[in-house]
Design a protein around this nucleic acid. Structure first.
Lengths: 135, 135
DNA sequence: GGTAGTAATGATAATAATTACTGATTAAGA
DNA sequence: TCTTAATCAGTAATTATTATCATTACTACC
């Protein structure tokens, strides 16, 4: 399936790259409707998934609806539980993570979550086995 | 609101502490129904929220439904995108994070997410201001 | 430029996950 | 034992997200 240009997807990416907050799908939808009045929420979700899957944006799973980030450099986030704002945090190597956030953004840190996504060794070996059986 | 003992909440916590996977609310619900046949899914959600809020368990926001972890020590997780399994990862200080996961669990790491939760400086200063006005 | 093929769209329905409501039950202290 | 308030089961409602489908609009080729 060859990806085809679409005005909506382009606007979505531009919107996400031009703002420094970390909007939800709905926030982006409301924002885009000013320029593309009849854009549909489904189109926003569809393209956000597509952009996230191809690595052009980041999708952040948090309390409540997902947030999206146009900055794809590896970096951390600080979520304020009170005002629901998402802050960017750049982590220099060799620094205690929590201290860093506290320097500029956080008054207090309750919780720190580190997550990895990828493919586990078991799944890869199952793939190899299946290959053997088929070929 | 004084917290009152409940058989259901106790069973929930025990269940979560006795298993080493990271079940979803629904998985826990199905499991508990064997011992408490008429427990309701609402009760499971209500108590999971309560336990997570009071820090007795961890709630993991990921692709798809949330997962829960009875282990509240600070540690990382590895999510296999293929089999949807959640692995625990202990991170010794001073080690490159990604390398560690790759040692035992991961064949490949596509994405690493680091998240902080807490209260930002702005919110705290707003709180102070409000206090001034009221008192 | 015309047109065939197909990805993408808007509108809406459907699903999944979670939360809220309600009247009954039960723990816990007086 | 009596009272009160937290908790429950059952169910309805809400929220976030995904699927469906008929129509639109990119793209490649003539």
């Amino acid at each position: 399936m060859v990806e085809k240009y679409s005005r909506q997807r382009e606007a979505l990416l531009k919107e996400l790259n031009s703002r420094c907050d970390h909007p939800t799908a709905d926030t982006i939808y409301l924002s885009l409707r000013e320029r593309i009045p009849n854009i549909s929420l489904g189109t926003v979700y569809r393209n956000l998934s597509k952009l996230a899957e191809s690595g052009k944006i980041q999708q952040l799973h948090v309390d409540g609806p997902d947030h999206f980030d146009g900055d794809i450099k590896e970096h951390s986030h600080f979520f304020c539980k009170k005002c629901d704002t998402v802050f960017d945090v750049a982590i220099p190597a060799g620094l205690r993570l929590e201290d860093l956030v506290k320097q500029n953004i956080a008054d207090s840190v309750d919780k720190q979550v580190i997550q990895f996504y990828g493919t586990c060794k078991k799944c890869v070996s199952v793939d190899l086995q299946n290959k053997k059986i088929i070929c």
